[in-house]
Design a binder for these strands. Structure first.
Lengths: 223, 223
DNA sequence: CCACGAAGGTTGCAGCAGCATTACGGAAAC
DNA sequence: GTTTCCGTAATGCTGCTGCAACCTTCGTGG
């Protein structure tokens, strides 16, 4: 596990690094925002600890910058200012948590763990395909982290395909995924759903395509 | 928020359920350990309140059973025996807290909150959505830092949606968040709540909107 | 290499499932 | 006693969905 610590008080930073090391966490440290961004490009951090008051500006400005660059690394904001309104400010802008100084290292650790647990757990249930993130458990689909709505039947088809991404899914498997045994299906309804789903995926620039394997079934692939 | 109460004294159980309901907590109740385990399989509880002395055995035996099944739902043990030694017994075995009868409901609530705060998400204590700040633990909602009061059921719906802000929440999930299994729901009560909640959110200029995902559920988004 | 049949693709349409809204009355809270 | 909450049911509406008709692509055998 590797954290980036952006903090200009060197004593605090050093103490934190030691404390985190005891929890088996590797910490990179910088005092300036400019360097911080560089570092995020070169390394893949599990989380970022961010001070607000920094020599080269307000720490919060870093959050949208990182987000715009396409990364969703969890960010925990550290600060002396702990007013409710400022909390909101931080969270609103896309930070994941907020911790007012002074704090106990144990409390920080708890928050780091909490913030890390989130994506890991999600990773177990979420499928990435093209620019899409598909969550079969919650039945939702996002493209570039904005919600992508689909009609229920098309959604079920997509999920069934995504679960076996890059592998052929038999036609009969799809039918079972979309219809229960009570609902008999007398026409090419499934084909129609595939067709409509393809159109929507293309229009939305999803980055995936549904291929047909003649006589067998379908297959979802990155474009 | 949803609790499982395992307690054989029915009057106490009923009184507790009412008291917890006032705090916006949905309570499922059972008197036997055997049923309790079943219920934990079928539902996802935020915490479990467990009596020690039960008709079909020592309540504590339930703790390792649940843990072995892979769940870490917080358990608070309730009991008349409040000897320090017995506390240790309970905690040792994997319970999270211990409360000797008689107790004040307020004390119980404080412990429930504490136990919920611990495991996962400190970050979840406050959710920002539009101009609202929602605190699921304390069940309050503020718009521009002034208190925004909602009827209980609507509040529960809002919180369930807010916890998964920008993501679809299944209709069934919402129903579970608002009703316990005894309260059967024979009509479109949930729809009615959604409708009324929408109106209130709009009138108050909350800055959020509830969208419907046909066939799946609902979704809370910034406007 | 062409023709032909089968599998798959596309699209308009009608019916209906699912949702939104609102009024009403009983119940609970104040 | 008044007000608010809540479940129910009636009403209206939207757009999903199954169907069918028609078109395109694929693969095989002559």
């Amino acid at each position: 596990m590797r954290l980036l610590l952006i903090e200009d008080e060197k004593e605090l930073a050093a103490a934190l690094a030691v404390a985190l090391a005891k929890h088996g966490i590797v910490t990179d440290h910088t005092t300036h925002l400019a360097d911080a961004f560089e570092l995020t490009l070169q390394n893949d951090y599990d989380a970022i600890l961010l001070d607000r008051r920094l020599p080269d500006g307000e720490g919060l400005t870093f959050v949208p910058k990182l987000r715009r660059s396409g990364r969703d690394t969890p960010i925990i904001v550290l600060t002396a200012r702990n007013e409710p309104l400022e909390r909101v400010e931080g969270l609103d802008i896309g930070a994941d948590d907020y911790l007012g100084k002074p704090f106990l290292v144990e409390e920080l650790m708890a928050r780091v763990r909490a913030v890390l647990r989130r994506p890991t757990n999600l990773a177990e249930t979420e499928i990435v395909a093209g620019r899409m993130v598909i969550n079969p458990l919650h039945l939702n689909v996002a493209i570039d982290s904005t919600q992508f709505d689909l009609p229920r039947r098309e959604l079920l088809v997509l999920i069934a395909l995504a679960k076996r991404k890059n592998k052929t899914v038999r036609r009969s498997t799809l039918e079972e995924a979309v219809y229960n045994y009570e609902e008999e299906i007398q026409s090419n309804a499934l084909d129609a759903h595939i067709s409509r789903l393809r159109k929507r995926l293309a229009d939305a620039g999803s980055g995936v395509a549904i291929h047909n394997i003649r006589g067998v079934g379908y297959l979802l692939k990155d474009e």
